[in-house]
Design a protein around this nucleic acid. Sequence first.
DNA 1: AAAAAATGCGTATAGGCGTACCCAAGGAAA
DNA 2: TTTCCTTGGGTACGCCTATACGCATTTTTT
Lengths: 153, 153
Amino acid sequence: MPALDDTDIKILNALQQDGRLSNAELAAKVNLSPSACLRRLHLLMAGELVAGTHLVLDQKMVGYPGTAYVFLTLDGQDRKQLDAFEARIKLIPQVQECYLLAGQADYLLRVVYKDSEDLERLHSEVLTRLPGIRRVQSTMTLRTVKRTAMLPL
Amino acid sequence: MPALDDTDIKILNALQQDGRLSNAELAAKVNLSPSACLRRLHLLMAGELVAGTHLVLDQKMVGYPGTAYVFLTLDGQDRKQLDAFEARIKLIPQVQECYLLAGQADYLLRVVYKDSEDLERLHSEVLTRLPGIRRVQSTMTLRTVKRTAMLPL
DNA sequence: AAAAAATGCGTATAGGCGTACCCAAGGAAA
DNA sequence: TTTCCTTGGGTACGCCTATACGCATTTTTT
C-alpha cells in the first residue's frame, strides 16, 4: 500500500464519517482545490485500501432491534465440513458477522433479530440445522453502547 | 417510519452495496427516471431510516489485521459507574463495538489490533485500567468468514 | 358514480459539479 | 546546475443534480 500523508488521512477520515460527501465538499474540508482533491480520491479508491462505501441503516427502524452473539461448536473439523458450513452461513442475511475462533471448530456469529420469537426461530430452525453443528449457544445483548466502523488512522 | 415499497427497497439495497452510486446510476438500476429517483432518495435520506453512509477501509491494509472479542466484568453495577465506563470506552478508537450484556455488569467488545503485542498492550494497559473493571477475558479470532452491514429488507 | 384531491412519474431547463488536461512550483536525483 | 518527478492550482467541457411543471393513475369525497 502507498504511504499516506496527512491530507490522505484527512480525506479518509472525512469519508469514514460521511461517505456521500461530494468532491467539492471534501476539498473544502481538507483545504485542497477540487482538482487536486479528486486526484487523490481516485488514487485512494483505486488502491487496495478501500473495501467500499456503504449505506448503513438504522437497525431498529428496519425492524431488527435485537442483536445477539452466537457461539457455534462443530463436531468435525475437516476442511470439507468447514467449507460447507461457511458457505451456508454466508447465505443467511440475519448473520452479520462470522469469525472462526481457535480450535478450528468454534465459530462466533453476530446476528440480528426482530423479536425473541425470531431469535428462537433462527436458533432452532436455522442454525442448529446447519451441517455438522454440535452446539449452539446464544448471548443476547441488552443495549448497544458503541458501534463504529472508523478504523484508527 | 414511512412504508417502503419495492422501489424503495431496491434503492436501499443498491446503496447498501455501493454507497457512492450517483443518482443517475441508481435511477438506471431501479428503472426510474433520475428525477423520480432523486425525490425518493431525498425522502429516504431525510427519514429516520438511514443512519449514514460510510467509507469502509480494509482492516489489514490499514495495519489492523487482528480482531478480538473481549468480555469485561465490572465489580459494581450502579448507574454512575456504568456511565463512567461507557464514556471511556467510546474514546478508545480500537474498540469498534461495545454491547451491554445481561446482568448489567458484563460488556462485550470487539477490538482491532496490529499484532499480538498490540493486543497485549490494549488488554493490560488500557482495558484493565478502565474504572471498575474486575475481569478482562479476550477471545482472538483466527479468520473472518463473513462481515456485512447489509440488513435484510 | 362523478368529481376532486392526492400521489407519483416523466420531461425540460438552469446551474453546479465532476472530469480531464495543462501549467507552475518545489524537491530529488544525476 | 540541469533534469525529472511529484503535487497543487486553474480552466473548459460535458454530465449530473435540482427544481418546476404537466400528466396519468389512484383514492377519497360527496
